[in-house]
Amino acid sequence: MPFFCFVESSLVGLQYMQPLDADFIDDARGEAAGLLRHHERAYAAHIFADDEFVATIRAADIASS
Rank of each mutant, 00 (worst) to 15 (best):
M1G: 13
M1Y: 04
M1A: 09
M1K: 08
M1D: 06
P2I: 10
P2R: 11
P2T: 11
F3P: 03
F3N: 01
F3S: 00
F3W: 05
F3Y: 15
F4C: 02
C5Y: 02
C5W: 01
C5M: 04
F6Q: 08
F6G: 03
F6H: 09
V7W: 00
V7F: 02
E8F: 13
E8L: 13
E8W: 09
E8K: 14
S9E: 10
S9H: 12
S10T: 13
S10F: 15
S10Y: 15
S10D: 13
L11N: 14
L11Y: 07
V12M: 05
V12A: 15
G13A: 07
G13Q: 05
G13S: 06
L14T: 06
L14E: 06
Q15R: 10
M17R: 15
M17T: 13
Q18D: 02
Q18V: 06
Q18C: 02
L20R: 00
D21F: 02
A22E: 09
A22L: 10
A22I: 07
A22H: 05
A22N: 05
D23N: 08
D23V: 07
F24T: 14
I25T: 08
D26Q: 14
D27F: 05
D27Y: 03
D27I: 07
D27A: 15
A28H: 00
A28F: 02
R29D: 01
R29P: 01
R29E: 13
G30D: 09
E31G: 02
A32H: 06
A32V: 04
A33C: 11
A33T: 04
A33E: 14
A33H: 03
A33K: 11
G34L: 08
G34W: 03
L35E: 09
L35C: 02
L36R: 03
L36D: 01
R37W: 11
R37C: 11
H38R: 14
H38F: 10
H38Y: 09
H38M: 08
H39N: 08
H39M: 06
H39W: 08
H39S: 10
E40Q: 12
E40C: 07
E40G: 04
E40L: 13
E40K: 12
E40W: 04
R41C: 08
A42G: 11
A42R: 11
Y43F: 15
A44Q: 15
A44L: 11
A45N: 01
H46C: 05
H46W: 06
H46G: 01
H46L: 10
H46I: 09
H46D: 10
I47C: 04
I47Y: 01
I47S: 00
I47P: 00
I47N: 01
F48Q: 03
F48A: 05
A49G: 05
A49M: 08
A49D: 04
D50A: 15
D50G: 15
D51G: 08
D51E: 14
D51Q: 11
D51Y: 08
E52C: 03
F53R: 08
F53V: 03
V54H: 03
V54Q: 10
A55D: 14
A55K: 07
T56Y: 09
T56W: 01
I57N: 02
I57H: 04
R58H: 14
R58G: 07
A59M: 03
A59L: 05
A59I: 01
A59E: 07
D61R: 09
D61E: 15
D61T: 09
I62M: 02
I62R: 02
A63Y: 01
S64P: 00
S65G: 12
